[in-house]
């Protein structure tokens, strides 16, 4: 009964261990190079927050099983890629209204600073560059794992909550003063 159910294809997931993030933002650099061919942190699908120095962490889509962002889109601009399980954005239909941001438990999506279309991680079609550069540098904060059944929403937290958890872990009660 404990054996895993055999699946035909194994979608990937970007596993994340925030306490290992050095704050180097190489994930932002890699993501924007891949998608924009520019070095453009605000147009990156993964964004590193540093609400308290030392508590840097990458903020990116976790692909919730119920995809509240997709459901919230009134223009049917969002969908799900069956092979990768990533959220897809149809730029032609997206109005940049922000409903998906409201629906996301982690407030992960954000609007492209120039095109005004929503930006959500597409897992680079199955080869996420953010995890790749993080591994190259040996930080091991982001890594590619098989998508298994767990509560993905646990990872879709707003930046303030993640920062608070990390700051408390690092600085103890003192963290209260920094938030």
């Amino acid at each position: 009964m404990w054996e895993k159910e055999e699946k035909k294809n194994h979608p990937i997931w970007v596993g994340r261990e925030f306490s290992k993030c050095s704050g180097c933002r190489k994930c932002e650099i890699a993501c924007s190079l891949r998608h924009e061919n520019k070095l453009w942190p605000e147009a990156s699908r993964v964004r590193v927050f540093m609400l308290v120095p030392g508590t840097e962490f990458p903020h990116l889509c976790t692909q919730c099983e119920d995809y509240p962002c997709v459901k919230a889109c009134r223009f049917k601009a969002l969908g799900v890629n069956e092979a990768t399980s990533a959220v897809t954005v149809n730029a032609e239909k997206c109005t940049g209204c922000g409903k998906c941001i409201d629906a996301c438990p982690g407030k992960v999506p954000h609007v492209h600073p120039q095109t005004n279309k929503i930006l959500i991680c597409d897992l680079c079609g199955g080869d996420p560059q953010c995890a790749k550069v993080c591994q190259e540098g040996g930080w091991n904060c982001l890594r590619v794992v098989e998508r298994e059944d767990h509560e993905f929403k646990l990872f879709a937290r707003v930046p303030e909550e993640t920062a608070k958890a990390l700051a408390t872990k690092l600085y103890g009660e003192k963290a209260e003063e920094f938030l």
Partner: peptide
């Protein structure tokens, strides 16, 4: 307001 969460 409608562009997502702002970084620091």
């Amino acid at each position: 307001p409608r562009v997502g969460v702002w970084k620091q």
